[in-house]
Each structure stands twice: as structure tokens, then as C-alpha cells.
């Protein structure tokens, strides 16, 4: 990997006129360094995000179900989640380093933490979405508590869970760029490298930043499409 020992003038390679003049965007550099810099950074970024959101989703789901069953736990968990979110991510990395070292684990713990606190309130609210009369009717017809959860409350929580998921994915993609302060991983790293130069190389910053934005947009759009397929009742409901 080219990041192992950054050159004095990073990532220039065979410099074109555009690159030498450090114009805002040199497509020839992007093409030349897709294989060794941008492509791997994008893949790493997707990995960082996917792992963080997946683990965060499972943990937040578990916590939300726990809070749903034991109503008294709902508020304390919510307060802790908000507190975690207020810790600046850079500070959180530094807090974790003595325990988990300068590793991907440190980065993932921080990212999981953030996705968790974004997902949890949406999931908790979603589970309470089922109107009281719907739950009463279900109970009155003889659904067991488990059936009420699986057939009524969980499906009705789907829209809120999906909107939480969209927020979590987009914010994790954004926060994951900061991982580069700790590890040479993700789309933050090319930006970080470029910024270290006294005259920052604009193309590298714009290309990596643009990829992060594009990744967020693509994921968000995919989730919107998925949510339309998953909650057919809400679309028709709006028309009535």
C-alpha cells in the first residue's frame, strides 16, 4: 500500500502541468491514483462504516427492546446516549487509545458509539409508535405479548428505524473521515496527507471529500428506496 511510507511530496507521482500548478481538480491524477490511493481508501471507508453501523444497529436494537420491556430503563439509557454523542470524536479516540491502542478497534469503538446513539432514540421511539388502541385491539383479540411485539410493534417501528439508520449511515460516513488522525484508513487519510503539506494538494482533498459525499448520497438513496418497499402502507395512507 502506498500509504506505508508517504513520499515527501505525497501522492504526486508523475506530475502533469495541472498537478504541478495545483489547480482545483486534476482528473488525470484521480485516474492515475485510483488504484493505489482513492479506490482502497473508499473500500476501507465502506468497511469502517458498515462494521460500525451493523454493530451499532444490533446494540441499539437490543437496548431499545430492553427499554421497551422495562419502561423505567428508557430514560436513563437515552440520557447516557446523548452524553456519549456530546463527546468530540477526536477526544474520544484519545480517551480510547490507552485501552485499545492505535488500532482499527479503537476507531470502530468510537464509530459504533456514535451510530448507536443515533440509532437508539429512533428505535426506542419507533417501538412506541404503535397507537395504544391498536395494541389494545390486538391484546383483546388474543395476541400474546410476543405476537404483539413481532406482528404489530416491530413492523410499525420500521419507518422510524429506517430514518434512524439513514442518519446513522450518513453521520458515520462523515465521522469515519476523522479516523485518519489515528490510522491510515478510509477516505480521511488522503485528505489528511494532503493537508500535511504546506501547500495542500487540492485535487486529492476534493476527490476524497467528494467520494465521501457521493458515498453518503448513494447509501441514503438506497435506504429511501428500501424503505418504500418495506412500508407499503404509509404511501397509500398519505393519499387518503
Amino acid at each position: 500500500m502506498s500509504h506505508a511510507s508517504p513520499p515527501v511530496i505525497p501522492h504526486f507521482g508523475t506530475a502533469s502541468d495541472c498537478v504541478l500548478a495545483n489547480r482545483p481538480f486534476c482528473s488525470d491524477w484521480v485516474r492515475a491514483h485510483w488504484q493505489d490511493t482513492l479506490g482502497p481508501a473508499l473500500v476501507q471507508h465502506v468497511e469502517l462504516t458498515a462494521i460500525a453501523v451493523a454493530i451499532g444497529f444490533i446494540l441499539a436494537g437490543g437496548l431499545a427492546l430492553f427499554a421497551h420491556r422495562i419502561r423505567r430503563a428508557e430514560q436513563p439509557i437515552g440520557v447516557v446516549a446523548t452524553l456519549v454523542y456530546t463527546i468530540p470524536s477526536l477526544a474520544l479516540f484519545q480517551i480510547l487509545v490507552p485501552f485499545t491502542g492505535i488500532t482499527t478497534t479503537t476507531v470502530e469503538i468510537a464509530l459504533v458509539g456514535y451510530s448507536l446513539v443515533v440509532l437508539y432514540p429512533n428505535m426506542a421511539a419507533g417501538l412506541n409508535h404503535a397507537p395504544a388502541d391498536v395494541v389494545e385491539a390486538a391484546r383483546g383479540m388474543g395476541l400474546t405479548e410476543r405476537q404483539i411485539l413481532l406482528r404489530i410493534e416491530l413492523p410499525l417501528a420500521v419507518p422510524a428505524v429506517l430514518s434512524g439508520l439513514r442518519l446513522a449511515v450518513v453521520s458515520t460516513i462523515s465521522i469515519a473521515t476523522i479516523a485518519a488522525f489515528l490510522m491510515p484508513r478510509g477516505l480521511g487519510y488522503p485528505i489528511f496527507v494532503a493537508l500535511r503539506d504546506p501547500a495542500p494538494f487540492k485535487t486529492e482533498i476534493y476527490a476524497a471529500g467528494g467520494l465521501a459525499v457521493a458515498l453518503a448520497l448513494v447509501c441514503d438513496t438506497a435506504l429511501v428506496v428500501a424503505s418504500r418497499a418495506l412500508v407499503p402502507w404509509t404511501r397509500k395512507g398519505l393519499a387518503a
Binding site: 388502541d133 395494541v135 385491539a137 383483546g140 388474543g142 395512507g237
Partner: peptide
Amino acid sequence: PVALRRGIGYVIQQIGLFPHHTVGENIGTV
């Protein structure tokens, strides 16, 4: 309670239809 309720029809003012189920699925619940 569950067996008892499945043998008794129950109608409430707010109706409490399942919004994510079609009319047919709602009727077929019990």
C-alpha cells in the same frame, strides 16, 4: 386470557385496525 380472548369478538371506539395490514389481513387476524 389468550384462549379466552380468541373466543370473544372485541370492538372498540378507536377500532384499532392494524395500519400495516390490509383490510383482508385485519379481518383474518383471529
